[in-house]
């Protein structure tokens, strides 16, 4: 239910509902927003209970992780009720395709309620993009590091196989792999994988 307290300053604050299961990610986003301008509520509920949350809090804007399964439900809200939040794209003009793309790529999206001033929403979106992109970056970095480690392990194993079966020194084993890679225009990891595949025959 909407607050009837007209004296409260919080009535001028933009009400932000953040739907995010990752607590750290949620905290970083919330800390980045100036609390004197925003009233932020963070929920990690899903399904029908999330809808109840939306009904109770009546947010001006909902910020949601793009990977949340609840997006389809929120997408459908604008058809059920006229005051319900609409996808951010319905406020964006055609030339704002870029904004939508940036949001999607940074792993976040938003739903906005009709009456709210778009400029105030923009600054929330900017914050969301900045925070979530940073997170996306960390995730990608972790992925790359994991990949690198796996590649190193494969190269080590192939090298060991060459040392043991071909009686090569460690240096020669590595050099012969590097030569094969250069001759065939392959990455050394791929050469290593081929060697191990042959070795397992």
């Amino acid at each position: 239910m909407k607050s009837s307290n007209t004296l409260s300053l919080s009535d001028n604050k933009v009400k932000v509902l953040l739907v995010e299961n990752n607590k750290r990610k949620a905290n970083e986003f919330m800390n980045a927003l100036d609390r004197s301008n925003y009233h932020i509520v963070h929920v990690s509920n899903t399904g029908v209970s999330l809808l109840k949350e939306v009904d109770m809090f009546l947010p001006d804007i909902i910020i949601i992780d793009i990977e949340s399964p609840d997006r389809d439900m929120l997408d459908s809200l604008n058809k059920i009720s006229s005051t319900a939040p609409k996808p951010i794209v319905m406020f964006a003009e055609q030339e704002d395709t870029q904004l939508i793309d940036i949001l999607v790529k940074s792993g976040v999206t938003a739903y906005v309620v009709g009456g709210v001033n778009l400029n105030r929403v923009k600054s929330i979106l900017d914050t969301a993009i900045a925070r979530f992109t940073q997170y996306q970056g960390l995730k990608d970095e972790l992925e790359t590091t994991k990949q690198k480690l796996t590649n190193q392990r494969v190269v080590e194993q192939a090298k060991l196989w060459l040392i043991q079966t071909k009686k090569l020194s460690e240096k020669d084993a590595y050099h012969s792999m590097r030569k094969m890679a250069m001759d065939n225009g392959q990455k050394i990891e791929d050469v290593a994988k081929n060697i191990l595949a042959l070795a397992s025959l």
């Binding site: 793009i66 990977e67 399964p69 997006r71 997408d75 939508i100 793309d101 999607v104 999206t109």
Partner: peptide, 15 residues
Amino acid sequence: QNSWSTLRDKVHSGL
């Protein structure tokens, strides 16, 4: 993908 809307948005934006 966890939702149809996200699947759509990712196709639209080329992800």
